[in-house]
Design a protein around this nucleic acid. Structure first.
Length: 733
RNA sequence: GCGCGAUUAGCUCAGUUGGUAGAGCAUCUCAUUUACACUGAGAGGGUCGCAGGUUCGAGCCCUGCAUCGCGCACCA
């Protein structure tokens, strides 16, 4: 027995050493696996943003995926886990801009595009290094030879190609449509980057000619010249669609036009409203339907334009009370009441979203096109379909399995409500849109066109555009690489429920369009890691926990097992440091179990084919094997939280507390006490203990890879230092 | 408003197809030159959110309600 078993297990001295052994073995790359397996199991790591350091959520996600990958590798599959990082356009730029503003008092415009992008890239590189070392600390068995970054050359080519192909298919278009404008970040953002916050405000009833209209935003109402009501509303039956009425309004008289539209809710307010198509999505749609004029009231900095007369140049927040005052003086305010509603704010900057009509690039989700090639059941190659149809069918047909029914419903619900996707962003960091302009001409292509005077589109793409390509851009698409031909679709994806819509659906869309395939077979959505009291971890609460701190206190094994055990996948985890501590003790328990077994079986060498079991040991074997059959099934179903708990219980409370205690008088202790068993009993029990130790190490390996590997390498039978990570998961016959 | 999830021991959570309520932590009692104090043996502690229903039998299935969390849509 190795002397090191005389001291308690020390993760700090062990883990980095073991990770290095794994990396040097080359087995993270499945092309090097012994036995050249053919059935593949591929997972692509959801690429962390290069915005700083990893948090417990990442640690959980890494543990979950690594456990699955290690299990599949031990099942004899060609298992590949592809690592990567995400440039995360807006998030990263906002972060760096904030730092520069704070430290140097400069804005991005002071630096200029080139300098800012340089600074962001430097930050991203540092952040990338931090992140990758953290991922290694967790023990993640990623194939680093396939590392990808969303902004590297291969991925950039994939993004450009994807854009051009979708443009050619008519699915990407440029258009004046209403966007979510972030006046602080000075960019558009997608619907998914909006966070709704409750706001208490006043709701005003204003006299608008013969009508009373309700509004919470009087400052947008200057130019309102359409008054809209429900077609069947009896109260307003005397007014006809298209009828003109002269009214007195904020800055004088104007001619209002009556519009009848079903978008109006008769129950709300007075059942009549005026519309501001330039600054409201609903109003914009009404204006589109009736081909109405639209006029900009607020500029992109949130200030009122010339149409506001004396209020021009005033910030909308300052203007509101003054405008109400003026309306009141003119006798146009009928009444006002308190009102609570949700306002849209930008997730990244916190600014209130100001809808604007702007020229932007869009992905058409409802537009029909002929798909050249499709392997998705229900969508035939060459048939007419839409991106939305691809997203729906991929899951509805069962080609992608989302075992958690609730999340599947959420997915379908989201697709039903999906609008065209605004993909242009007015920031500087990210994939620049591959479009060039000269005079009124436009060129879309992989490279800039020949000839002088072409100017490239200033905008960059939404970060989720490149993320959507991730399962196949990481495999080298658009080149027809071997990986792409043999490993796509990937097997498994485990994102947090937060990004089901943002990311998962877009991967399905992109993979469906560009490859005619689904991006993955199984989606197992996981929950969030929260503070112990259920609060979200956040900077403002200052309750963040650095996974690296946990690792240096308790070891990566303990952190992994603590995160994976006890909470069903999909539910939020309330993080409890005590639990992690408990699994540190468990690693040490396993360490001492090994010590005991090796000591008390001295003189017996491991015999894999042993068969002369005593009746008692037959019973013990049957009990153990029943557990292995159980947990193997549960591993296949991704019920890791049950498996680790059962193994913990078996090892500690059955193997150690019962079987080892009962073995003491039977086997004796070398040099201390003679065992009372017969030779046959001793032989049988010694073999049982050695077999069980092997099985326990194998089945625990996906959860606590470091300590199990460390033990495995010191087992006496392992004379040629074979790694546990490529051993076979026990099969019970 | 629509949808999803949660509600089980003091705390954090499991509980497969319906068959006598489980774990970890915490608490209490006892043990101790012990493989391991990062220990062992034991104990207490639950109207399974509430009210109905189906069933021989419900934590689990059905209906309604309550509270909390989340998602979507927003009402001008």
């Amino acid at each position: 027995m190795h002397d090191k078993f005389l001291k308690p297990y020390n993760p700090q001295e062990t883990e980095d050493k073991i990770y290095k052994l794994w990396e040097e073995s080359g087995f993270f790359n499945p092309d090097n696996l012994p036995g050249k397996p053919t059935e593949h199991f591929t997972v692509v790591l959801p690429p962390p943003n290069v915005t700083g350091i990893l948090h417990l959520g990442h640690a959980y996600e890494d543990s979950l995926q690594d456990a699955v990958i290690r299990f599949q590798r031990m099942r004899g599959k060609k298992s590949l886990w592809i690592p990567g990082t995400d440039s995360a356009a807006i998030a990263t730029q906002a972060r760096v801009e904030k730092n520069i503003q704070k430290e140097e008092g400069k804005s991005r415009h002071d630096l200029g595009r080139e300098e800012l992008v340089k600074r962001i890239e430097k930050f991203a590189k540092e952040s990338e290094n931090t992140i990758l070392s953290q991922v290694r600390k967790m023990g993640s068995s990623l194939d680093w030879s396939r590392y990808a970054y969303t902004l590297d050359e291969t991925r950039t080519k994939a993004v450009t190609t994807a854009f051009v192909n979708m443009y050619k298919a008519g699915l990407i278009y440029q258009g004046d449509r209403i966007v979510n404008w972030d006046p602080k970040g000075q960019t558009t953002i997608s619907d998914d980057e909006i966070e709704y916050k409750e706001e208490k405000t006043k709701f005003y009833y204003l006299k608008y000619g013969p009508f009373t209209i309700g509004t919470a935003r009087p400052e947008t109402k200057f130019g309102d010249k359409y008054v809209v009501m429900y077609p069947d509303d009896a109260r307003y039956a005397e007014y006809k669609h298209g009828q003109k009425i002269e009214i007195e309004w904020i800055n004088g008289p104007l001619i209002a036009t009556v519009i009848k539209d079903t978008a109006i809710d008769m129950e709300f307010g007075t059942g009549v409203m005026t519309i501001t198509p330039w600054h409201s999505a609903v109003d914009f749609e009404i204006a589109e339907r009736h081909k109405l004029q639209r006029e900009q009231i607020i500029d992109k900095y949130g200030k009122l334009l010339a149409i506001a007369g004396e209020f021009a140049g005033t910030k909308i927040t300052d203007a509101r009370p003054k405008i109400v005052e003026k309306l009141r003086a003119k006798g146009l305010v009928v009444k006002e009441e308190d009102y609570t509603h949700n306002i849209a704010t930008a997730e990244r900057t916190g600014a209130t979203i100001e809808p604007q009509i702007m020229k932007q690039w869009w992905v058409a989700v409802n537009k029909s096109f002929a798909i050249p090639h499709s392997e998705i059941p229900g969508i035939a190659s060459g048939s007419q379909t839409t991106l939305k149809e691809i997203m729906r069918t991929a899951v509805a047909s069962g080609e992608i399995s989302i075992p958690q029914e609730g999340f599947q419903k959420a997915y379908f619900h989201w697709i039903e409500n999906l609008h065209d996707w605004c993909i242009s962003r007015q920031i500087w960091f990210g994939h620049r849109i591959p479009v060039w302009y000269r005079d009124s001409k436009i060129y879309v292509g992989l490279e800039s066109p020949k000839g002088v005077g072409w100017v490239q589109e200033a905008d960059v793409l939404d970060t989720w555009f490149s993320s959507g390509l991730w399962t196949f851009s990481t495999m080298g698409w658009p080149e027809k690489t071997k990986d792409l031909q043999t490993l796509h679709p990937t097997s498994f994806m485990s994102p947090a429920y937060e990004i089901l819509n943002l990311w998962v659906s877009r991967m399905i869309m992109m993979s469906g369009f560009h490859l005619g395939q689904v991006p993955f077979r199984t989606v197992m959505i996981h929950g969030l890691v929260r503070a112990k009291n259920g609060q979200k971890f956040s900077k403002s609460l200052n309750n963040g926990i650095d996974p690296i701190d946990m690792i240096s206190k308790y070891g990566a094994d303990a952190l992994r097992m603590g995160l994976l055990t006890g909470t069903a996948i999909g539910n939020d985890i309330n993080f409890d440091e005590n639990k992690i501590k408990g699994y540190k003790n468990f690693a040490n328990k396993l360490w001492n179990i090994t010590r005991f077994i090796l000591t008390s079986t001295e003189g017996h060498s491991f015999d894999p084919d042993f068969s002369k079991w005593t009746e008692t040991d037959k019973t013990l074997t049957a009990e153990r094997d029943a557990l292995i059959v159980d947990i193997t099934q549960e591993m296949e179903e991704y019920k890791l939280y049950l498996v680790s708990e059962k193994l913990y219980h078996y090892v500690w409370h059955t193997l150690a507390d019962k079987i080892l205690e009962e073995s003491k008088p039977l086997l004796g202790t070398p040099g201390v006490a003679e065992g009372k068993g017969t030779d046959a009993e001793k032989k049988s029990r010694a073999q049982f203990l050695l077999h069980t130790l092997h099985i326990v190490l194998k089945t625990l390996h996906p959860f606590i890879p470091f300590v199990t590997e460390e033990i495995w390498l010191t087992l006496p039978h392992n004379t040629d230092q074979k790694l546990l990570m490529v051993e076979k998961w026990p099969i019970i016959r």
